[in-house]
């Protein structure tokens, strides 16, 4: 039994997390079965492939080799990996800064407006990705809408050269993932207790202080969830780098994609994927552990 559960037992009502009874396990069963069948089994298949070799025509030969893993740690791929993490990190930070106020406003809006506003955040993404991206290209290209707009104010300027640059990639990434930051934060903001905020004001705190010491700490779980939902998929993303970045700088998602498509080297692609997923799982597990310890010390 974990220390937290013991603490919970010692302080009944404070942390109510009991050991599950058969009923809880029964309820967990569908999810566990699903995960075993459609996450663990496919991952196991990939792990087997990652130790295999490709033959002359691109089929997978079931031998045992560590060559694929040796290749993964080639500096070329490590740099690409580092670059992917940098792009995803930058995207996440911008999404928090841009998205938090939006989530806050929606969460504080009149009740009948909240779900409508939430839907309005998501609806743009119910168009086709390709068509949406081509619309961005129309905006960002040299003779595009953005530069036309800028020239209205200062005629004769050369305009910005944005399309097919890393800036365009970041714009594309932020655009694609912003809703995945706004929505979970909204979930936290919506449950903020108005009385608590009022109490803080009554005690003489200024609005910025209330915001930074009451509101933000209370909505931190939402920010953490949003970070997970934005950062993690953004690291492995490949289509935006191709379309908006002109495919000039490969990211880890592109490299993995290429192994299965152009190079037809499935074992190496599987090894790249295995290392990528393994690193993530290890980091996430450690963070969960640290989070739990922190919670315990608070309890």
């Amino acid at each position: 039994m974990s220390p937290a559960a013991k603490a919970g037992a010692a302080l009944p009502g404070l942390i109510d997390r009991r050991t599950p009874r058969w009923r809880a396990w029964l309820l967990l069963l569908p999810m566990v079965t699903w995960l075993v069948l459609f996450v663990v089994a496919p991952t196991a298949i990939l792990l087997v492939y990652s130790f295999c070799e490709r033959d002359e025509v691109g089929r997978v030969l079931f031998t045992f080799t560590l060559d694929n893993y040796r290749r993964v740690f080639d500096p070329v791929y490590l740099w690409i990996f580092a670059r992917s993490i940098y792009y995803a990190g930058l995207t996440t930070v911008i999404c928090i800064v841009a998205g938090y106020p939006v989530a806050y406003c929606i969460g504080r809006a009149r009740e009948e407006w909240r779900q409508r506003l939430l839907l309005l955040v998501m609806v743009p993404f119910w168009t086709s990705f390709l068509i949406r991206t081509y619309a961005w290209i129309t905006i960002l290209k040299q003779e595009g809408l953005l530069n036309g707009f800028l020239r209205l104010f200062s005629p004769g300027t050369a305009g910005l050269d944005l399309l097919y640059t890393p800036t365009a990639v970041v714009i594309g990434l932020v655009y694609a993932y912003l809703p995945f930051m706004i929505l979970p934060i909204y979930g936290s903001v919506e449950k903020l207790d108005g009385a608590l905020i009022e109490a803080a004001y009554d005690l003489g705190a200024g609005p910025l202080r209330v915001f930074s010491s009451v509101i933000i700490p209370l909505t931190l779980p939402g920010v953490a969830a949003g970070t997970l939902l934005v950062f993690v998929p953004a690291v492995g993303m490949f289509a935006i780098t191709d379309l908006m970045g002109g495919a000039r700088v490969p990211l880890i998602g592109n490299v993995i994609q290429n192994q299965f498509m152009q190079a037809r080297d499935w074992p190496f692609g599987a090894a790249l994927g295995a290392v990528f997923m393994g690193l993530f799982a290890a980091t996430y597990w450690v963070m969960l552990r640290l989070g739990a310890q922190e919670e315990d010390s608070v309890a």
């Binding site: 996450v39 991952t43 990939l46 690291v235 993995i256 498509m261 997923m277």
Partner: peptide, 9 residues
């Protein structure tokens, strides 16, 4: 894990 798993994999 499914969130981090590249779609192609």
């Amino acid at each position: 894990v499914p969130m981090v798993m590249p779609e192609i994999l």
